[in-house]
């Protein structure tokens, strides 16, 4: 197990490459989900104001 993390003494390079890759891909997905959630909040608000306009 320790051997796996040490990677023959090249842990910094191996995990430096893999870590940043994982970080960026996960960050992209989180950003996409947040973008979608924010978009629905905005669109729903837009829809409600439209309904109100119609009723007046």
């Amino acid at each position: 197990m320790v051997e796996f993390f040490v990677q023959g003494g090249y842990a910094f390079f191996v995990w430096g490459a893999y870590g940043v890759t994982a970080l960026l891909l996960v960050a992209e997905v989180i950003q996409l989900r947040a973008q979608r959630r924010a978009l629905f909040v905005r669109l729903n608000r837009l829809n409600r104001t439209r309904e109100l306009d119609k009723n007046q």
């Binding site: 990677q7 023959g8 003494g9 090249y10 390079f13 191996v14 490459a17 893999y18 890759t21």
Partner: peptide, 20 residues
């Protein structure tokens, strides 16, 4: 393999190839 042999004897860092 942990380490490569032959004309290109790289160590564990060659594993970056999979994402690179």
């Amino acid at each position: 393999t942990d380490q490569l042999g032959g004309s290109n004897p790289q160590k564990e860092y060659y594993r970056i190839i999979f994402i690179h």
